[in-house]
Protein backbone atom coordinates (compact mmCIF):
# COMPACT_ATOMS: atom_id res chain seq x y z
CA UNK A 1 0.00 0.00 0.00
CA UNK A 2 2.49 2.56 1.09
CA UNK A 3 5.32 3.41 -1.13
CA UNK A 4 7.91 5.74 0.30
CA UNK A 5 10.57 6.17 -2.32
CA UNK A 6 13.52 8.32 -1.45
CA UNK A 7 16.28 9.18 -3.80
CA UNK A 8 18.88 11.85 -3.28
CA UNK A 9 21.15 12.95 -6.05
CA UNK A 10 24.40 14.76 -5.53
CA UNK A 11 24.41 14.75 -1.75
CA UNK A 12 25.89 11.77 -0.02
CA UNK A 13 23.60 11.68 3.00
CA UNK A 14 21.04 9.66 1.13
CA UNK A 15 22.12 8.40 -2.23
CA UNK A 16 19.39 6.85 -4.25
CA UNK A 17 17.57 5.05 -1.48
CA UNK A 18 14.26 3.42 -2.34
CA UNK A 19 12.06 1.68 0.10
CA UNK A 20 8.47 0.65 0.48
CA UNK A 21 6.63 -0.12 3.67
CA UNK A 22 3.46 -2.20 3.69
CA UNK A 23 0.62 -2.15 6.18
CA UNK A 24 1.55 -4.18 9.21
CA UNK A 25 5.16 -4.26 8.23
CA UNK A 26 7.80 -3.41 10.82
CA UNK A 27 10.82 -2.35 8.86
CA UNK A 28 14.10 -2.22 10.72
CA UNK A 29 16.62 0.36 9.57
CA UNK A 30 20.21 -0.30 10.58
CA UNK A 31 23.58 1.12 9.77
CA UNK A 32 26.56 2.79 11.48
CA UNK A 33 26.39 6.33 12.84
CA UNK A 34 25.94 8.84 10.07
CA UNK A 35 24.88 6.26 7.53
CA UNK A 36 21.72 8.26 6.80
CA UNK A 37 19.10 6.55 8.98
CA UNK A 38 17.87 9.68 10.71
CA UNK A 39 18.13 11.63 7.49
CA UNK A 40 15.88 9.07 5.88
CA UNK A 41 13.26 9.48 8.62
CA UNK A 42 13.54 13.25 8.31
CA UNK A 43 12.99 12.96 4.56
CA UNK A 44 9.96 10.70 4.91
CA UNK A 45 8.42 13.04 7.49
CA UNK A 46 9.23 16.08 5.31
CA UNK A 47 11.52 17.70 7.89
CA UNK A 48 14.08 18.08 5.12
CA UNK A 49 13.70 18.45 1.37
CA UNK A 50 14.77 15.88 -1.14
CA UNK A 51 17.15 17.07 -3.81
CA UNK A 52 15.58 14.55 -6.13
CA UNK A 53 13.27 11.60 -5.94
CA UNK A 54 9.68 11.23 -4.85
CA UNK A 55 7.69 10.41 -1.76
CA UNK A 56 4.33 8.69 -2.00
CA UNK A 57 1.85 7.77 0.66
CA UNK A 58 -1.02 5.50 -0.35
CA UNK A 59 -0.49 6.44 -3.95
CA UNK A 60 -0.41 10.18 -3.26
CA UNK A 61 2.70 12.11 -4.08
CA UNK A 62 3.72 14.35 -1.18
CA UNK A 63 7.29 15.08 -2.18
CA UNK A 64 6.82 18.84 -1.94
CA UNK A 65 4.13 19.00 0.72
CA UNK A 66 4.92 20.99 3.86
CA UNK A 67 5.90 19.00 6.95
CA UNK A 68 2.60 19.41 8.77
CA UNK A 69 0.80 17.78 5.84
CA UNK A 70 2.92 14.66 6.15
CA UNK A 71 1.31 14.13 9.54
CA UNK A 72 -2.09 14.77 8.02
CA UNK A 73 -1.40 11.97 5.53
CA UNK A 74 -0.91 9.60 8.45
CA UNK A 75 2.82 9.78 9.13
CA UNK A 76 3.82 10.20 12.77
CA UNK A 77 7.29 10.07 14.22
CA UNK A 78 9.43 10.18 17.31
CA UNK A 79 12.80 11.86 17.54
CA UNK A 80 16.25 10.73 18.59
CA UNK A 81 16.13 12.89 21.71
CA UNK A 82 13.33 13.41 24.23
CA UNK A 83 11.23 16.27 22.95
CA UNK A 84 8.49 16.70 25.49
CA UNK A 85 7.32 20.19 26.43
CA UNK A 86 8.28 20.96 30.00
CA UNK A 87 5.53 23.47 30.65
CA UNK A 88 2.79 20.89 30.15
CA UNK A 89 1.76 17.74 31.93
CA UNK A 90 2.47 14.36 30.37
CA UNK A 91 -1.16 13.95 29.39
CA UNK A 92 -1.18 17.36 27.70
CA UNK A 93 1.94 16.41 25.80
CA UNK A 94 0.17 13.35 24.47
CA UNK A 95 -2.89 15.47 23.72
CA UNK A 96 -0.73 17.38 21.26
CA UNK A 97 -0.86 14.21 19.20
CA UNK A 98 -4.49 13.45 19.89
CA UNK A 99 -5.58 16.93 18.82
CA UNK A 100 -3.70 16.83 15.50
CA UNK A 101 -6.82 16.42 13.41
CA UNK A 102 -8.54 19.39 15.05
CA UNK A 103 -5.39 21.50 14.77
CA UNK A 104 -5.50 21.09 11.00
CA UNK A 105 -8.63 23.25 10.98
CA UNK A 106 -6.34 26.18 11.57
CA UNK A 107 -5.86 28.78 14.28
CA UNK A 108 -9.19 30.57 13.95
CA UNK A 109 -11.26 27.43 14.33
CA UNK A 110 -9.29 26.14 17.29
CA UNK A 111 -9.47 29.54 18.93
CA UNK A 112 -13.07 30.60 18.36
CA UNK A 113 -15.19 27.56 17.57
CA UNK A 114 -16.08 27.09 21.20
CA UNK A 115 -18.91 24.57 20.99
CA UNK A 116 -16.73 22.21 19.05
CA UNK A 117 -13.71 22.93 21.24
CA UNK A 118 -15.48 21.55 24.29
CA UNK A 119 -16.15 18.26 22.55
CA UNK A 120 -12.69 18.13 21.05
CA UNK A 121 -11.05 18.68 24.40
CA UNK A 122 -12.91 15.72 25.91
CA UNK A 123 -12.17 13.53 22.94
CA UNK A 124 -8.48 14.44 22.86
CA UNK A 125 -8.17 13.86 26.58
CA UNK A 126 -9.71 10.40 26.25
CA UNK A 127 -7.61 9.51 23.24
CA UNK A 128 -4.45 10.69 24.97
CA UNK A 129 -5.25 8.64 28.05
CA UNK A 130 -5.78 5.58 25.86
CA UNK A 131 -2.46 6.15 24.13
CA UNK A 132 -0.73 6.40 27.50
CA UNK A 133 -2.38 3.15 28.57
CA UNK A 134 -1.24 1.54 25.37
CA UNK A 135 2.39 2.22 26.22
CA UNK A 136 1.82 1.14 29.80
CA UNK A 137 1.89 4.51 31.54
CA UNK A 138 -1.70 5.04 32.46
CA UNK A 139 -1.05 6.67 35.83
CA UNK A 140 1.57 9.20 34.75
CA UNK A 141 -0.70 11.67 32.95
CA UNK A 142 -0.64 14.32 35.64
CA UNK A 143 3.12 14.31 36.10
CA UNK A 144 5.42 16.71 34.31
CA UNK A 145 7.93 15.40 31.78
CA UNK A 146 10.94 16.55 33.79
CA UNK A 147 9.80 14.40 36.70
CA UNK A 148 9.92 11.23 34.60
CA UNK A 149 12.90 8.93 34.29
CA UNK A 150 14.36 8.60 30.81
CA UNK A 151 12.66 5.34 29.85
CA UNK A 152 9.08 6.39 30.59
CA UNK A 153 9.73 9.79 28.97
CA UNK A 154 10.64 8.04 25.72
CA UNK A 155 7.52 5.93 25.98
CA UNK A 156 5.45 9.08 26.34
CA UNK A 157 6.86 10.15 22.99
CA UNK A 158 5.67 6.91 21.42
CA UNK A 159 2.27 7.52 23.00
CA UNK A 160 2.16 11.02 21.54
CA UNK A 161 2.92 9.68 18.06
CA UNK A 162 0.33 6.93 18.46
CA UNK A 163 -2.26 9.47 19.58
CA UNK A 164 -2.10 10.92 16.06
CA UNK A 165 -3.61 7.61 14.92
CA UNK A 166 -0.99 7.24 12.22
CA UNK A 167 -0.86 4.79 9.36
CA UNK A 168 2.93 4.92 9.29
CA UNK A 169 4.99 5.31 12.44
CA UNK A 170 8.64 6.36 12.27
CA UNK A 171 10.68 5.55 15.38
CA UNK A 172 14.18 6.98 15.76
CA UNK A 173 16.05 4.80 18.26
CA UNK A 174 13.11 4.57 20.64
CA UNK A 175 14.86 2.27 23.10
CA UNK A 176 18.28 3.91 23.26
CA UNK A 177 19.17 4.42 26.90
CA UNK A 178 16.39 2.18 28.20
CA UNK A 179 16.81 -0.71 30.59
CA UNK A 180 16.62 -4.26 29.23
CA UNK A 181 13.15 -4.75 30.71
CA UNK A 182 11.90 -1.54 29.13
CA UNK A 183 13.37 -2.53 25.78
CA UNK A 184 11.44 -5.75 25.85
CA UNK A 185 8.22 -3.96 26.71
CA UNK A 186 8.70 -1.61 23.79
CA UNK A 187 9.55 -4.57 21.55
CA UNK A 188 6.30 -6.28 22.48
CA UNK A 189 4.37 -3.06 21.95
CA UNK A 190 5.82 -2.58 18.47
CA UNK A 191 5.02 -6.19 17.53
CA UNK A 192 1.45 -5.73 18.69
CA UNK A 193 1.09 -2.52 16.72
CA UNK A 194 2.41 -4.35 13.69
CA UNK A 195 -0.19 -7.09 14.15
CA UNK A 196 -2.86 -4.39 14.28
CA UNK A 197 -1.80 -3.40 10.79
CA UNK A 198 0.35 -0.33 11.51
CA UNK A 199 3.27 0.22 9.17
CA UNK A 200 6.44 1.11 11.06
CA UNK A 201 10.01 2.07 10.39
CA UNK A 202 12.32 1.42 13.30
CA UNK A 203 15.81 2.89 13.48
CA UNK A 204 17.72 0.85 15.99
CA UNK A 205 21.28 -0.02 16.96
CA UNK A 206 20.33 -3.08 18.97
CA UNK A 207 20.52 -5.89 16.42
CA UNK A 208 18.99 -8.38 18.85
CA UNK A 209 15.93 -6.18 19.12
CA UNK A 210 15.75 -5.83 15.35
CA UNK A 211 15.93 -9.60 14.91
CA UNK A 212 13.22 -10.09 17.50
CA UNK A 213 10.57 -7.67 16.29
CA UNK A 214 11.16 -6.70 12.66
CA UNK A 215 9.84 -8.59 9.70
CA UNK A 216 12.13 -6.87 7.24
CA UNK A 217 15.44 -5.05 7.57
CA UNK A 218 17.24 -2.49 5.47
CA UNK A 219 20.90 -1.74 6.14
CA UNK A 220 22.33 1.62 5.14
CA UNK A 221 25.86 2.85 4.80
CA UNK A 222 27.08 6.09 3.23
CA UNK A 223 23.47 6.88 2.41
CA UNK A 224 23.03 3.76 0.30
CA UNK A 225 21.19 0.55 0.85
CA UNK A 226 23.81 -2.17 1.30
CA UNK A 227 21.51 -5.01 2.25
CA UNK A 228 17.82 -5.69 2.42
CA UNK A 229 15.74 -8.70 3.41
CA UNK A 230 14.75 -10.81 6.37
CA UNK A 231 16.48 -9.92 9.65
CA UNK A 232 18.55 -13.08 9.74
CA UNK A 233 19.76 -12.60 6.16
CA UNK A 234 20.80 -9.02 6.68
CA UNK A 235 22.55 -9.78 9.94
CA UNK A 236 24.60 -12.41 8.17
CA UNK A 237 25.44 -10.14 5.25
CA UNK A 238 29.14 -9.58 4.67
CA UNK A 239 28.83 -5.89 3.84
CA UNK A 240 26.77 -5.22 6.94
CA UNK A 241 29.26 -6.94 9.19
CA UNK A 242 32.03 -4.93 7.63
CA UNK A 243 30.16 -1.64 8.02
CA UNK A 244 29.47 -2.32 11.66
CA UNK A 245 32.68 -3.98 12.75
CA UNK A 246 35.29 -3.25 10.14
CA UNK A 247 35.47 0.50 9.74
CA UNK A 248 34.24 2.28 12.78
CA UNK A 249 35.71 5.55 11.52
CA UNK A 250 33.84 5.31 8.24
CA UNK A 251 30.70 6.47 9.96
CA UNK A 252 32.42 9.58 11.23
CA UNK A 253 33.36 10.72 7.75
CA UNK A 254 29.89 10.23 6.45
CA UNK A 255 28.38 12.34 9.18
CA UNK A 256 29.72 15.60 7.78
CA UNK A 257 27.55 15.79 4.65
CA UNK A 258 24.56 14.81 6.72
CA UNK A 259 24.94 17.91 8.84
CA UNK A 260 24.91 20.06 5.76
CA UNK A 261 21.57 18.67 4.79
CA UNK A 262 20.14 19.21 8.22
CA UNK A 263 20.97 22.85 8.02
CA UNK A 264 19.34 23.59 4.69
Amino acid sequence: MKDARVAFGGVRALDGVSLTVQDGQLLGLIGPNGSGKSTLLAAISRMIDLSSGTLTMEGRDYTNAPAHLANALGIARTFQTVRLLRTMSVLENVMLGAQAEWVRRGPLATWLWLSRARREEKRARRAAQQALERVGLKDLGRRHPQELPYGPARKVEIARALACEPKLLLLDEPTAGMSQAEREEVGILLSELSKDGLAQVLVEHDLAMIQRVCNRVVALNFGQVIAEGLPAQVAADELVREAYLGHRDAGMEASAPMMEIGRQ
Binding site: M47, H68, F79
Partner: peptide, 12 residues
Protein backbone atom coordinates in the same frame (compact mmCIF):
# COMPACT_ATOMS: atom_id res chain seq x y z
CA UNK B 1 9.07 25.60 22.35
CA UNK B 2 9.72 23.30 19.38
CA UNK B 3 8.59 24.28 15.90
CA UNK B 4 9.78 21.10 14.27
CA UNK B 5 7.93 18.95 16.77
CA UNK B 6 4.82 21.06 16.22
CA UNK B 7 5.05 20.46 12.48
CA UNK B 8 5.34 16.73 13.02
CA UNK B 9 2.01 16.96 14.87
CA UNK B 10 0.11 18.65 12.02
CA UNK B 11 0.60 22.21 13.21
CA UNK B 12 0.84 24.68 10.36
Amino acid sequence: EDEQLARSLSVN
